[in-house]
């Protein structure tokens, strides 16, 4: 049990924090996938835009800075839907995915140009850094942001669950996610449902931007890119067809990454990606429809 011995409370705390943030991102990606059948690779660039907003508004009161972060991210998310996703609604999944690559690179290139105006790469979001301090709980140092991350994730997920199950728009969204065409026939308004999903997904990206910027206040154009890729992998591993399995997948990959990192011998941690992705392959081979997609078989797709 030498592997488990190296996993202490500290690691568990970090693992929950990481898992919580990835779960939030997974919800944002999964919601849009549910209604649009579109894997949004550019999701990370929404978070990046939010992080830059925080960095450039460092001089403002923290609340104003965070509000403007949310405003920018939601506006960008809506613009993305209107200008890119809507014309692509009837395209094949490959075309949609590659178009979001292009949008991701576009936003990153724009961020680079804006960033480089002052002659140096990267901006520091200094105003919200204090959240990153550690507090001691029972002899374990836990960063305050970990609590915030877990709290925000739990709060956001409960709120979203209530909205999805208790309101009309939530019902419509779930109907659209399970069968868009039939839902429309029964009077669900496509554009309203999609706008709802896009706005919620944007709000979540804003929250993630704040959390990630607290952890790492140094904002660069590829901010959150790596996280997005990992979350996309986690979402598919968990089961992208349902929001809950997608969310669990996002949480699981964040959680497992931290645990594996702690369990590996120090000189072998450089091979962390290999171990995690080898696990991903094994899980996909055993459960192609998703790790948490119980009781449903992957049917042959028919038109």
């Amino acid at each position: 049990m030498t592997i488990l011995a190296s996993i202490d409370l500290q690691t568990l705390g970090d693992a929950f924090g990481q898992g919580a943030i990835y779960a939030l991102m997974a919800v944002g990606i999964g919601l849009v996938f549910g209604v649009l059948r579109l894997v949004n690779f550019a999701y990370g660039q929404l978070i990046m835009a939010g992080a830059y907003t925080l960095a450039y508004t460092s001089g403002w009161p923290v609340a104003a800075s965070i509000v403007s972060c949310f405003a920018v991210v939601v506006a960008l998310s809506l613009a993305m839907d209107r200008l890119v996703f809507r014309p692509l609604r009837s395209s094949s999944p490959a075309v949609m995915l590659v178009t979001t690559f292009a949008i991701a690179f576009l936003l990153q290139a724009v961020a680079l140009i804006i960033d480089l105006r002052d002659g140096q790469l990267g901006q520091v979001a200094s105003s919200i850094a204090p959240l990153n301090q550690a507090v001691s709980v029972g002899g374990v140092d836990v960063r305050k942001v970990t609590f915030v991350a877990v709290g925000v994730a739990v709060g956001a997920l409960i709120t979203l669950a209530l909205v999805l199950t208790r309101t009309t728009i939530g019902l419509h969204t779930r109907a659209a996610a399970s069968d868009f065409r039939t839902a429309r026939l029964l009077g669900v308004r496509a554009n309203r449902v999609i706008a709802f999903a896009v706005v919620v997904s944007g709000l979540l990206a804003g929250a993630v931007a704040v959390l990630l910027t607290v952890q790492n206040p140094f904002v660069q154009p590829d901010f959150a890119l790596e996280d997005t890729i990992i979350v996309l992998v986690g979402v598919v591993v968990g089961g992208i067809d349902r929001l809950w399995t997608a969310t669990l997948g996002g949480f699981a990959i964040g959680f497992v990454s931290v645990i594996v990192n702690a369990a590996l011998p120090t000189d072998k941690t450089v091979f962390l990606p290999s171990v995690v992705y080898a696990l991903v392959i094994v899980v996909l081979l055993l459960r192609p429809a998703g790790l948490f997609a119980w009781g449903r078989r992957a049917a042959v797709e028919r038109v």
């Binding site: 999944p93 992705y277 080898a278 392959i281 996909l284 797709e301």
Partner: peptide, 25 residues
């Protein structure tokens, strides 16, 4: 040999995992 049993997004992600492992190694 093992991966070609997959299709759709699962295949995309599994092959992406191969890219990550190759790059890492």
């Amino acid at each position: 040999l093992p991966l070609m049993r997959l299709s759709g997004l699962a295949a995309g992600i599994a092959t992406f995992a191969v890219l990550e492992i190759t790059h890492n190694v």
